[in-house]
Amino acid sequence: MSFYDYFLNYFKNRFSKNQITNENVSGAILAELVIISSTLIAALLLRHISIVLTAVVILILLVLILSNLPISIKFFQEQDDSIEKMTFYAILCLGIIVSLVYWGGL
């Protein structure tokens, strides 16, 4: 089964009650490709810190990406307009930034 069919089926299962246009599916595929390729390329930037770290991070990313494959749709559902998700991610991000900058910069 091709990647496109896989995608289409996932879409249909999830949103079967409403119409799907080819524009939605092509947009989702583009988002999927952009996220996967850019994340992997961006991970290569870690080689300026340590090459072993880069290899480990890329392996972890590959496992994460392959195990959650229609990743753009999951991202889309997390990037929701609900206040709960927005505040949660804001606070989570605050925690990550503070700990990363504090212990990373020391």
């Binding site: 949103f15 119409q19 307009d81 609900s82 206040i83 709960e84």
Partner: peptide, 16 residues
Amino acid sequence: SASKILNHESDMGDEL
């Protein structure tokens, strides 16, 4: 209740 009045599903999940 914030979960009732401030939680709108995104457009795609709603109507697609």
